[in-house]
Design a binder for these strands. Structure first.
Lengths: 189, 189
DNA sequence: GTATTTTAACAAATCATATTAGTTATGTCA
DNA sequence: TGACATAACTAATATGATTTGTTAAAATAC
Protein backbone atom coordinates (compact mmCIF):
# COMPACT_ATOMS: atom_id res chain seq x y z
CA UNK A 1 0.00 0.00 0.00
CA UNK A 2 1.96 3.03 -1.21
CA UNK A 3 1.59 6.24 0.70
CA UNK A 4 -0.22 9.04 -0.99
CA UNK A 5 2.26 11.54 -2.35
CA UNK A 6 1.66 15.24 -2.57
CA UNK A 7 3.96 18.16 -3.17
CA UNK A 8 3.77 21.90 -2.93
CA UNK A 9 2.53 22.31 -6.47
CA UNK A 10 -0.29 19.79 -6.16
CA UNK A 11 -1.34 21.33 -2.84
CA UNK A 12 -1.59 24.79 -4.34
CA UNK A 13 -3.28 23.65 -7.52
CA UNK A 14 -5.88 21.67 -5.64
CA UNK A 15 -6.42 24.60 -3.26
CA UNK A 16 -6.91 26.89 -6.26
CA UNK A 17 -9.41 24.50 -7.76
CA UNK A 18 -11.33 24.18 -4.53
CA UNK A 19 -11.29 27.92 -3.89
CA UNK A 20 -12.78 28.48 -7.32
CA UNK A 21 -15.45 25.82 -6.96
CA UNK A 22 -16.58 25.85 -3.33
CA UNK A 23 -15.55 29.44 -2.59
CA UNK A 24 -12.56 30.78 -0.70
CA UNK A 25 -14.59 31.12 2.49
CA UNK A 26 -15.22 27.36 2.51
CA UNK A 27 -11.63 26.38 1.94
CA UNK A 28 -9.93 24.90 4.99
CA UNK A 29 -6.86 22.79 5.58
CA UNK A 30 -9.18 20.03 6.71
CA UNK A 31 -11.20 19.87 3.50
CA UNK A 32 -8.14 20.45 1.33
CA UNK A 33 -6.29 17.59 3.00
CA UNK A 34 -9.31 15.34 2.64
CA UNK A 35 -9.53 16.17 -1.04
CA UNK A 36 -5.87 15.30 -1.46
CA UNK A 37 -6.30 12.08 0.50
CA UNK A 38 -4.07 13.04 3.43
CA UNK A 39 -4.52 14.36 6.94
CA UNK A 40 -4.28 18.05 7.53
CA UNK A 41 -1.00 18.09 9.50
CA UNK A 42 0.70 16.53 6.48
CA UNK A 43 0.14 19.72 4.58
CA UNK A 44 2.63 21.41 6.87
CA UNK A 45 5.41 19.58 5.07
CA UNK A 46 4.64 21.66 1.99
CA UNK A 47 3.14 24.89 3.19
CA UNK A 48 3.61 27.01 6.26
CA UNK A 49 0.05 27.04 7.53
CA UNK A 50 -3.25 28.37 6.33
CA UNK A 51 -2.19 31.96 5.88
CA UNK A 52 0.82 30.91 3.88
CA UNK A 53 -1.42 28.81 1.67
CA UNK A 54 -3.57 31.80 0.83
CA UNK A 55 -0.46 33.86 0.19
CA UNK A 56 0.72 31.16 -2.20
CA UNK A 57 -2.65 31.14 -3.91
CA UNK A 58 -2.36 34.87 -4.40
CA UNK A 59 1.07 34.58 -6.01
CA UNK A 60 -0.13 31.68 -8.13
CA UNK A 61 -3.08 33.74 -9.34
CA UNK A 62 -1.06 36.81 -10.28
CA UNK A 63 1.34 34.65 -12.25
CA UNK A 64 -1.48 32.91 -14.08
CA UNK A 65 -3.12 36.21 -14.84
CA UNK A 66 0.14 37.63 -16.11
CA UNK A 67 0.37 34.81 -18.63
CA UNK A 68 -3.18 35.41 -19.76
CA UNK A 69 -2.49 39.09 -20.27
CA UNK A 70 0.71 38.46 -22.20
CA UNK A 71 -1.19 36.13 -24.49
CA UNK A 72 -4.03 38.58 -24.92
CA UNK A 73 -1.81 41.41 -26.00
CA UNK A 74 0.16 39.54 -28.66
CA UNK A 75 0.00 41.31 -32.00
CA UNK A 76 -1.83 44.30 -30.62
CA UNK A 77 -0.72 47.80 -29.75
CA UNK A 78 -2.07 51.06 -28.43
CA UNK A 79 -5.67 51.21 -27.33
CA UNK A 80 -6.46 47.84 -28.86
CA UNK A 81 -3.86 46.34 -26.58
CA UNK A 82 -5.29 48.13 -23.54
CA UNK A 83 -8.77 46.95 -24.34
CA UNK A 84 -7.61 43.38 -24.82
CA UNK A 85 -5.75 43.42 -21.52
CA UNK A 86 -8.81 44.70 -19.69
CA UNK A 87 -10.95 41.95 -21.12
CA UNK A 88 -8.35 39.31 -20.28
CA UNK A 89 -8.18 40.59 -16.72
CA UNK A 90 -11.94 40.55 -16.38
CA UNK A 91 -12.29 37.08 -17.83
CA UNK A 92 -9.70 35.64 -15.49
CA UNK A 93 -11.24 37.27 -12.44
CA UNK A 94 -14.70 35.96 -13.24
CA UNK A 95 -13.53 32.47 -14.10
CA UNK A 96 -11.33 32.15 -11.01
CA UNK A 97 -13.32 33.80 -8.31
CA UNK A 98 -11.73 32.03 -5.36
CA UNK A 99 -8.18 32.68 -6.46
CA UNK A 100 -9.06 36.22 -7.44
CA UNK A 101 -10.32 36.85 -3.91
CA UNK A 102 -6.91 36.00 -2.53
CA UNK A 103 -5.30 38.24 -5.14
CA UNK A 104 -7.33 41.15 -3.85
CA UNK A 105 -7.16 40.35 -0.20
CA UNK A 106 -3.77 38.86 0.47
CA UNK A 107 -1.72 41.44 -1.33
CA UNK A 108 -1.72 43.41 1.89
CA UNK A 109 1.57 42.19 3.32
CA UNK A 110 3.95 44.16 1.20
CA UNK A 111 6.63 41.56 0.99
CA UNK A 112 9.11 41.59 -1.85
CA UNK A 113 7.68 38.62 -3.72
CA UNK A 114 4.33 40.35 -3.83
CA UNK A 115 5.60 43.59 -5.27
CA UNK A 116 7.59 41.64 -7.79
CA UNK A 117 4.72 39.60 -9.10
CA UNK A 118 2.19 42.41 -9.46
CA UNK A 119 4.64 44.98 -10.74
CA UNK A 120 5.72 42.54 -13.41
CA UNK A 121 2.10 42.25 -14.43
CA UNK A 122 1.34 45.91 -14.58
CA UNK A 123 4.61 46.67 -16.30
CA UNK A 124 3.05 45.29 -19.44
CA UNK A 125 0.25 47.78 -19.03
CA UNK A 126 2.78 50.48 -18.37
CA UNK A 127 4.75 49.78 -21.53
CA UNK A 128 1.67 50.07 -23.68
CA UNK A 129 0.63 53.39 -22.19
CA UNK A 130 4.14 54.77 -22.61
CA UNK A 131 3.97 53.97 -26.31
CA UNK A 132 1.08 56.46 -26.52
CA UNK A 133 3.22 59.52 -25.99
CA UNK A 134 2.08 60.05 -22.42
CA UNK A 135 4.45 61.22 -19.71
CA UNK A 136 5.95 58.75 -17.27
CA UNK A 137 4.10 60.27 -14.32
CA UNK A 138 0.76 60.14 -16.06
CA UNK A 139 1.40 56.52 -17.08
CA UNK A 140 1.75 55.63 -13.42
CA UNK A 141 -1.57 57.29 -12.68
CA UNK A 142 -3.25 55.61 -15.63
CA UNK A 143 -2.12 52.15 -14.63
CA UNK A 144 -3.49 52.76 -11.17
CA UNK A 145 -6.78 53.97 -12.60
CA UNK A 146 -7.23 50.93 -14.82
CA UNK A 147 -6.15 48.60 -12.07
CA UNK A 148 -8.53 50.14 -9.56
CA UNK A 149 -11.42 49.94 -11.95
CA UNK A 150 -10.68 46.38 -13.03
CA UNK A 151 -10.26 45.04 -9.51
CA UNK A 152 -13.29 46.91 -8.23
CA UNK A 153 -15.53 45.86 -11.08
CA UNK A 154 -14.61 42.19 -10.79
CA UNK A 155 -15.01 42.29 -7.03
CA UNK A 156 -18.50 43.70 -7.36
CA UNK A 157 -19.50 41.35 -10.14
CA UNK A 158 -18.18 38.30 -8.26
CA UNK A 159 -20.08 39.35 -5.16
CA UNK A 160 -23.31 39.84 -7.03
CA UNK A 161 -23.33 43.43 -5.95
CA UNK A 162 -24.71 44.68 -9.25
CA UNK A 163 -28.42 44.12 -9.59
CA UNK A 164 -29.37 43.34 -13.15
CA UNK A 165 -26.91 40.73 -14.35
CA UNK A 166 -28.08 41.09 -17.94
CA UNK A 167 -26.49 44.47 -18.45
CA UNK A 168 -23.17 43.85 -16.75
CA UNK A 169 -21.30 43.18 -19.97
CA UNK A 170 -22.59 46.45 -21.36
CA UNK A 171 -21.47 48.27 -18.25
CA UNK A 172 -18.01 46.82 -18.61
CA UNK A 173 -17.77 47.70 -22.28
CA UNK A 174 -18.97 51.25 -21.77
CA UNK A 175 -16.66 51.78 -18.82
CA UNK A 176 -13.62 50.64 -20.78
CA UNK A 177 -14.60 52.94 -23.59
CA UNK A 178 -14.86 55.86 -21.23
CA UNK A 179 -11.54 55.09 -19.60
CA UNK A 180 -9.86 54.88 -22.99
CA UNK A 181 -11.49 58.07 -24.23
CA UNK A 182 -10.26 59.83 -21.12
CA UNK A 183 -6.81 58.39 -21.61
CA UNK A 184 -6.66 59.88 -25.09
CA UNK A 185 -6.81 63.31 -23.54
CA UNK A 186 -3.45 62.70 -21.93
CA UNK A 187 -1.56 62.16 -25.17
CA UNK A 188 1.31 64.58 -25.39
CA UNK A 189 0.99 65.46 -21.69
CA UNK B 1 -21.36 46.34 42.08
CA UNK B 2 -23.53 47.08 39.07
CA UNK B 3 -23.25 44.79 36.09
CA UNK B 4 -21.76 46.21 32.95
CA UNK B 5 -24.46 47.12 30.48
CA UNK B 6 -24.09 46.94 26.76
CA UNK B 7 -26.58 47.11 23.92
CA UNK B 8 -26.59 46.42 20.23
CA UNK B 9 -25.52 49.91 19.32
CA UNK B 10 -22.56 50.02 21.67
CA UNK B 11 -21.46 46.58 20.48
CA UNK B 12 -21.44 47.65 16.85
CA UNK B 13 -19.86 51.01 17.51
CA UNK B 14 -17.07 49.49 19.53
CA UNK B 15 -16.59 46.79 16.88
CA UNK B 16 -16.35 49.49 14.24
CA UNK B 17 -13.81 51.39 16.29
CA UNK B 18 -11.72 48.28 16.87
CA UNK B 19 -11.93 47.20 13.24
CA UNK B 20 -10.62 50.60 12.21
CA UNK B 21 -7.82 50.66 14.73
CA UNK B 22 -6.51 47.10 15.07
CA UNK B 23 -7.70 45.89 11.66
CA UNK B 24 -10.66 43.75 10.73
CA UNK B 25 -8.53 40.62 10.65
CA UNK B 26 -7.69 41.05 14.33
CA UNK B 27 -11.25 41.61 15.45
CA UNK B 28 -12.74 38.70 17.39
CA UNK B 29 -15.65 38.27 19.72
CA UNK B 30 -13.14 37.56 22.44
CA UNK B 31 -11.26 40.83 22.08
CA UNK B 32 -14.43 42.80 21.45
CA UNK B 33 -16.04 41.43 24.60
CA UNK B 34 -12.90 42.17 26.59
CA UNK B 35 -12.91 45.73 25.31
CA UNK B 36 -16.53 46.13 26.34
CA UNK B 37 -15.83 44.61 29.75
CA UNK B 38 -17.99 41.51 29.31
CA UNK B 39 -17.48 37.87 28.43
CA UNK B 40 -17.91 36.83 24.82
CA UNK B 41 -21.09 34.77 25.25
CA UNK B 42 -22.81 37.90 26.50
CA UNK B 43 -22.51 39.40 23.05
CA UNK B 44 -25.01 36.84 21.82
CA UNK B 45 -27.74 38.74 23.59
CA UNK B 46 -27.23 41.56 21.09
CA UNK B 47 -25.85 40.03 17.94
CA UNK B 48 -26.30 36.72 16.23
CA UNK B 49 -22.71 35.59 16.15
CA UNK B 50 -19.53 36.71 14.49
CA UNK B 51 -20.80 36.67 10.92
CA UNK B 52 -23.83 38.69 11.91
CA UNK B 53 -21.57 41.22 13.60
CA UNK B 54 -19.62 41.74 10.39
CA UNK B 55 -22.86 42.01 8.46
CA UNK B 56 -23.99 44.68 10.92
CA UNK B 57 -20.70 46.49 10.54
CA UNK B 58 -21.20 46.49 6.79
CA UNK B 59 -24.68 48.00 7.09
CA UNK B 60 -23.44 50.51 9.64
CA UNK B 61 -20.66 51.57 7.29
CA UNK B 62 -22.88 52.03 4.26
CA UNK B 63 -25.26 54.17 6.29
CA UNK B 64 -22.44 56.30 7.64
CA UNK B 65 -21.01 56.72 4.17
CA UNK B 66 -24.41 57.66 2.82
CA UNK B 67 -24.60 60.49 5.31
CA UNK B 68 -21.14 61.69 4.39
CA UNK B 69 -22.05 61.72 0.73
CA UNK B 70 -25.28 63.57 1.30
CA UNK B 71 -23.41 66.22 3.22
CA UNK B 72 -20.72 66.47 0.59
CA UNK B 73 -23.14 67.11 -2.22
CA UNK B 74 -25.14 69.85 -0.59
CA UNK B 75 -25.24 72.94 -2.74
CA UNK B 76 -23.50 71.30 -5.65
CA UNK B 77 -24.75 69.96 -8.95
CA UNK B 78 -23.48 68.31 -12.09
CA UNK B 79 -19.84 67.39 -12.30
CA UNK B 80 -18.96 69.35 -9.20
CA UNK B 81 -21.36 67.15 -7.29
CA UNK B 82 -19.87 63.99 -8.77
CA UNK B 83 -16.37 65.07 -7.89
CA UNK B 84 -17.38 65.94 -4.34
CA UNK B 85 -19.07 62.57 -3.89
CA UNK B 86 -16.00 60.75 -5.12
CA UNK B 87 -13.80 62.59 -2.66
CA UNK B 88 -16.22 61.97 0.18
CA UNK B 89 -16.27 58.27 -0.66
CA UNK B 90 -12.51 58.10 -0.77
CA UNK B 91 -12.07 59.96 2.46
CA UNK B 92 -14.46 57.71 4.33
CA UNK B 93 -12.85 54.55 2.99
CA UNK B 94 -9.38 55.66 3.99
CA UNK B 95 -10.42 56.89 7.42
CA UNK B 96 -12.44 53.76 8.23
CA UNK B 97 -10.41 50.96 6.80
CA UNK B 98 -11.76 48.18 8.96
CA UNK B 99 -15.39 49.04 8.40
CA UNK B 100 -14.73 49.63 4.73
CA UNK B 101 -13.35 46.11 4.45
CA UNK B 102 -16.63 44.70 5.65
CA UNK B 103 -18.48 46.95 3.20
CA UNK B 104 -16.55 45.40 0.35
CA UNK B 105 -16.48 41.86 1.60
CA UNK B 106 -19.74 41.23 3.33
CA UNK B 107 -22.00 42.60 0.67
CA UNK B 108 -21.94 39.18 -0.90
CA UNK B 109 -25.08 37.81 0.69
CA UNK B 110 -27.66 39.54 -1.41
CA UNK B 111 -30.21 39.98 1.29
CA UNK B 112 -32.83 42.68 1.08
CA UNK B 113 -31.37 44.95 3.72
CA UNK B 114 -28.11 44.98 1.80
CA UNK B 115 -29.60 45.93 -1.52
CA UNK B 116 -31.61 48.61 0.21
CA UNK B 117 -28.71 50.29 1.91
CA UNK B 118 -26.34 50.37 -1.04
CA UNK B 119 -28.96 51.23 -3.61
CA UNK B 120 -30.06 54.14 -1.47
CA UNK B 121 -26.50 55.35 -1.48
CA UNK B 122 -25.92 55.06 -5.18
CA UNK B 123 -29.29 56.54 -5.96
CA UNK B 124 -27.84 59.90 -5.05
CA UNK B 125 -25.14 59.32 -7.61
CA UNK B 126 -27.76 58.21 -10.07
CA UNK B 127 -29.84 61.33 -9.65
CA UNK B 128 -26.90 63.57 -10.37
CA UNK B 129 -25.95 61.74 -13.53
CA UNK B 130 -29.53 61.83 -14.77
CA UNK B 131 -29.53 65.60 -14.44
CA UNK B 132 -26.78 65.64 -17.06
CA UNK B 133 -29.03 64.66 -19.94
CA UNK B 134 -27.74 61.11 -20.08
CA UNK B 135 -30.01 58.16 -20.81
CA UNK B 136 -31.26 55.98 -17.99
CA UNK B 137 -29.31 52.95 -19.25
CA UNK B 138 -26.09 54.87 -19.49
CA UNK B 139 -26.61 56.27 -16.00
CA UNK B 140 -26.73 52.73 -14.66
CA UNK B 141 -23.46 51.96 -16.40
CA UNK B 142 -21.87 55.16 -15.15
CA UNK B 143 -22.77 54.54 -11.56
CA UNK B 144 -21.24 51.08 -11.82
CA UNK B 145 -18.09 52.52 -13.36
CA UNK B 146 -17.63 55.09 -10.62
CA UNK B 147 -18.46 52.59 -7.93
CA UNK B 148 -16.01 50.04 -9.29
CA UNK B 149 -13.24 52.57 -9.52
CA UNK B 150 -13.87 54.03 -6.08
CA UNK B 151 -14.05 50.68 -4.32
CA UNK B 152 -11.06 49.32 -6.20
CA UNK B 153 -8.91 52.38 -5.59
CA UNK B 154 -9.65 52.48 -1.87
CA UNK B 155 -9.06 48.76 -1.55
CA UNK B 156 -5.66 49.08 -3.18
CA UNK B 157 -4.70 52.15 -1.22
CA UNK B 158 -5.77 50.61 2.07
CA UNK B 159 -3.77 47.49 1.32
CA UNK B 160 -0.67 49.44 0.45
CA UNK B 161 -0.76 47.93 -3.00
CA UNK B 162 0.39 51.11 -4.70
CA UNK B 163 4.08 51.66 -4.37
CA UNK B 164 4.89 55.33 -4.08
CA UNK B 165 2.51 56.74 -1.48
CA UNK B 166 3.49 60.30 -2.34
CA UNK B 167 1.70 60.33 -5.66
CA UNK B 168 -1.48 58.58 -4.66
CA UNK B 169 -3.49 61.76 -4.29
CA UNK B 170 -2.43 62.82 -7.76
CA UNK B 171 -3.47 59.46 -9.14
CA UNK B 172 -6.89 59.84 -7.58
CA UNK B 173 -7.36 63.36 -8.87
CA UNK B 174 -6.29 62.49 -12.38
CA UNK B 175 -8.47 59.39 -12.43
CA UNK B 176 -11.54 61.33 -11.38
CA UNK B 177 -10.83 63.90 -14.03
CA UNK B 178 -10.58 61.21 -16.68
CA UNK B 179 -13.78 59.53 -15.54
CA UNK B 180 -15.62 62.84 -15.65
CA UNK B 181 -14.22 63.77 -19.06
CA UNK B 182 -15.34 60.41 -20.36
CA UNK B 183 -18.75 60.90 -18.81
CA UNK B 184 -19.17 64.17 -20.68
CA UNK B 185 -19.06 62.24 -23.91
CA UNK B 186 -22.33 60.56 -22.94
CA UNK B 187 -24.34 63.75 -22.69
CA UNK B 188 -27.32 63.53 -24.97
CA UNK B 189 -26.84 59.79 -25.44
C1' DG C 1 22.39 -5.98 -1.26
C1' DT C 2 22.47 -3.97 3.27
C1' DA C 3 22.81 0.03 6.30
C1' DT C 4 22.05 4.82 6.97
C1' DT C 5 19.76 8.97 6.25
C1' DT C 6 16.08 11.81 4.74
C1' DT C 7 11.50 12.70 3.65
C1' DA C 8 6.94 13.10 4.55
C1' DA C 9 2.75 11.03 6.33
C1' DC C 10 0.66 9.95 10.60
C1' DA C 11 -1.63 9.89 15.41
C1' DA C 12 -2.18 12.32 19.38
C1' DA C 13 -2.23 16.33 21.85
C1' DT C 14 -2.73 21.36 22.33
C1' DC C 15 -4.66 25.88 21.48
C1' DA C 16 -7.81 29.36 20.18
C1' DT C 17 -12.08 30.87 19.05
C1' DA C 18 -16.93 30.53 18.20
C1' DT C 19 -21.00 28.84 19.89
C1' DT C 20 -24.59 26.58 22.97
C1' DA C 21 -26.83 25.34 27.35
C1' DG C 22 -28.03 26.13 31.55
C1' DT C 23 -27.61 29.29 35.83
C1' DT C 24 -27.87 33.50 38.33
C1' DA C 25 -27.96 38.27 39.41
C1' DT C 26 -30.17 42.66 38.52
C1' DG C 27 -33.80 45.60 37.61
C1' DT C 28 -38.79 46.45 36.51
C1' DC C 29 -43.49 46.37 37.29
C1' DA C 30 -47.86 44.86 39.19
C1' DT D 1 -43.01 42.50 48.22
C1' DG D 2 -42.99 39.16 44.78
C1' DA D 3 -43.13 37.49 39.94
C1' DC D 4 -41.05 38.22 35.64
C1' DA D 5 -37.85 39.58 32.03
C1' DT D 6 -33.41 40.78 30.77
C1' DA D 7 -28.90 40.05 30.14
C1' DA D 8 -24.85 38.82 32.35
C1' DC D 9 -22.29 34.72 33.82
C1' DT D 10 -19.99 29.86 34.10
C1' DA D 11 -19.33 25.64 32.08
C1' DA D 12 -19.33 22.78 28.35
C1' DT D 13 -18.99 21.69 23.33
C1' DA D 14 -17.35 22.02 18.58
C1' DT D 15 -14.33 23.03 14.97
C1' DG D 16 -10.26 23.95 12.89
C1' DA D 17 -5.39 25.28 13.06
C1' DT D 18 -1.12 24.09 14.74
C1' DT D 19 2.72 21.48 17.36
C1' DT D 20 5.10 17.40 18.83
C1' DG D 21 6.91 13.26 18.46
C1' DT D 22 6.65 8.63 15.85
C1' DT D 23 7.08 5.75 11.98
C1' DA D 24 7.08 3.99 7.42
C1' DA D 25 8.70 4.52 2.89
C1' DA D 26 12.05 6.12 -0.28
C1' DA D 27 16.63 7.63 -1.49
C1' DT D 28 21.46 7.38 -0.92
C1' DA D 29 25.87 5.53 0.59
C1' DC D 30 28.83 1.82 1.50
Amino acid sequence: MPKIKIDKESVIKEAAYMANTIGIENLSLKTLAAQLGVKSPSLYNHIDGFDDLKQQLMLYGWKELENRIIEAVIGLSGYDAIRAMCYAFHEYAIENQGVFSTMLWYNQFDNEQMNEVTSKMFTIFFKVTKSLNISQDNCVHLVRMFRSFLEGFALLENHNAFGNTQLIKDSFELSITILIEGTKKLEGK
